[in-house]
Amino acid sequence: MDGMQEKIKFDTEEGAVEFFVLEETRVNGCNYLLVTDSEEEEAEAFILKDVSDASEAEAVYEMVEDGTELESVSKIFTELLEDITFE
């Protein structure tokens, strides 16, 4: 996973969490981020969906948990990043 530079901070109920942004895409008018919690080769990756209102100053992201949506968006990220494998 070369080229990871951007790191973003999320505030959760458990406290602040930082993720490395691998890629972003827009599907059906929704923005998605592919993020990871580590720069290691076998790191866990998560897909986040922007659920914020257009009038909000900052984006609000939630983890994609719907199986159909997760599968669909993960296929797009797989095409964008040829060296990524989802399990």
Results as ranks from 00 to 15, higher is better:
residue 2 D to N: 09
residue 2 D to W: 03
residue 6 E to W: 08
residue 9 K to F: 11
residue 11 D to A: 12
residue 11 D to G: 11
residue 12 T to R: 10
residue 14 E to N: 05
residue 16 A to L: 04
residue 16 A to Q: 07
residue 23 E to F: 07
residue 24 E to P: 01
residue 26 R to A: 15
residue 26 R to S: 15
residue 27 V to A: 09
residue 27 V to H: 12
residue 29 G to M: 12
residue 32 Y to Q: 00
residue 33 L to F: 10
residue 34 L to T: 04
residue 34 L to R: 05
residue 35 V to D: 03
residue 36 T to K: 05
residue 40 E to I: 01
residue 40 E to T: 05
residue 42 E to P: 03
residue 43 A to M: 05
residue 43 A to F: 01
residue 45 A to W: 01
residue 49 K to W: 11
residue 50 D to K: 07
residue 51 V to T: 07
residue 51 V to E: 12
residue 52 S to N: 06
residue 52 S to Q: 04
residue 53 D to W: 07
residue 53 D to Q: 09
residue 54 A to Y: 14
residue 56 E to A: 11
residue 57 A to S: 13
residue 57 A to K: 15
residue 59 A to Y: 09
residue 59 A to L: 04
residue 61 Y to N: 05
residue 61 Y to P: 07
residue 61 Y to M: 09
residue 62 E to C: 08
residue 63 M to P: 06
residue 63 M to H: 02
residue 64 V to T: 03
residue 66 D to W: 11
residue 66 D to S: 12
residue 66 D to R: 07
residue 68 T to K: 04
residue 68 T to I: 10
residue 69 E to A: 01
residue 71 E to M: 13
residue 71 E to Q: 14
residue 73 V to L: 09
residue 74 S to V: 01
residue 74 S to N: 02
residue 74 S to C: 03
residue 75 K to D: 15
residue 77 F to W: 10
residue 79 E to C: 00
residue 79 E to K: 00
residue 79 E to L: 01
residue 82 E to M: 08
residue 84 I to M: 06
residue 85 T to D: 06
residue 85 T to F: 00
residue 85 T to N: 01
residue 86 F to N: 02
residue 87 E to N: 02
